[in-house]
Structures are given as structure tokens and as C-alpha cells.
């Protein structure tokens, strides 16, 4: 991934020399040219195109933003309801993610989404303890995190 980015920046700089103009806009044009060249040559490359990962990261960001807005609507509903009938609780989430960076990312995403805040980690860093505002349906909360975030994070980091 880092290597391909370097190749892309190199193409952009060569483009600047060819145009003999060293401005931001000529760099961006050159960068776009580099992307096009890499896309055309992708069959000849021995590695995967890094843009796939960039696209996965953008998808993760979009999932995150929609979840953030849903989270806020949920919290606002609970806060402004006249009778507080929600049933909070702490649940354990066993994650399939491998590296520490991924687990950290997952924990922060959990903290910013519907009714859940991460609280603590187990000793082997593979279980996240989550405080939920409404945990009547524990399986639903866990399945939501597994399907949305874990999958999206895996696509970015694998």
C-alpha cells in the first residue's frame, strides 16, 4: 500500500515537471493521472490496487457517520422521554479482530454509536465490555456490531 502511494506521488511529481508548473492544482492533476495509470496497469501488477482499501475506508467512514446520527436520535429519545424505562447493563463482546489497532478502532466506533459505550478490556485484549442504555435484546446489539463494524474494519486492514 505504501509503495503504491509512493509510485502515485512520483507520477504526480513527474507530471509537474512535464507541465513545468509547481502548484497544488497541477499536483492534484498529476495524482489523478497516476490513479488512472495504476487502474489501467492493474492487471500487470503483482499486488492488489491500494485504491480498494481507500474505498473500503471511505465506506467505513460513511457507515460510521450514519450510525453516529442514528445513535444521537436514540439517545435524544431516551433523554427526552417523560418516563425513564430503559434498562441499562454491561455486556461482553468477543471480537474476531486480531491486531491492537483494529481493536482500538472498534472500541472507539462502539463508543460513538447507538446506545453503547465501551468500558473495559479483558487481559488478552480480545473482549470488549460495553455499557448499553437499553440491553433487553443483547443478541441484537452484538449482531449489529459484528455485521456493521467488524466486517468494515476487516475490509480496510486485511
Amino acid at each position: 500500500m505504501a509503495f503504491q502511494l509512493l509510485v502515485n506521488i512520483l507520477i504526480a511529481i513527474i507530471w509537474q515537471f512535464l507541465q513545468n508548473s509547481f502548484t497544488l492544482s497541477s499536483f492534484i492533476t498529476g495524482f489523478l493521472m497516476g490513479i488512472i495509470i495504476l487502474v489501467i496497469l492493474r492487471r500487470a501488477l503483482t499486488f492488489n490496487l491500494y485504491l480498494v482499501k481507500v474505498w473500503a475506508a471511505i465506506k467505513l467512514l460513511l457507515i460510521f457517520l450514519t450510525e453516529l446520527i442514528k445513535a444521537n436520535i436514540d439517545v435524544i429519545k431516551i433523554v427526552l422521554s417523560p418516563k425513564m424505562t430503559h434498562q441499562p447493563g454491561i455486556i461482553a463482546l468477543e471480537t474476531e479482530l486480531k491486531t491492537d489497532v483494529e481493536v482500538t478502532l472498534l472500541a472507539s466506533l462502539i463508543s460513538l454509536t447507538p446506545g453503547t459505550v465501551s468500558m473495559d478490556f479483558s487481559k488478552d485484549n480480545r473482549t470488549i465490555y460495553i455499557h448499553t442504555l437499553d440491553c433487553e435484546n443483547k443478541e441484537k446489539v452484538l449482531a449489529g456490531i459484528h455485521n456493521n463494524f467488524e466486517r468494515a474494519i476487516m475490509e480496510v486492514t486485511e
Binding site: 424505562t85 454491561i90 465501551s118 465490555y129
Partner: peptide, 23 residues
């Protein structure tokens, strides 16, 4: 996360409606 963690470690009780505590 840090506020929650340190509160739990210093034995701040959960509210009375709470139904589950796996930690």
C-alpha cells in the same frame, strides 16, 4: 472509556434498573 473504566474500578454502583453485568 476512561471515565467509565475508573468509575467501575472504584465501585460506583450501576443504577437500579440495570439488568445485566457481565463485567
Amino acid at each position: 472509556l476512561m471515565v467509565n473504566r475508573s468509575a467501575y474500578r472504584s465501585d460506583v454502583p450501576l443504577e437500579k434498573n440495570s439488568i445485566r453485568d457481565e463485567l
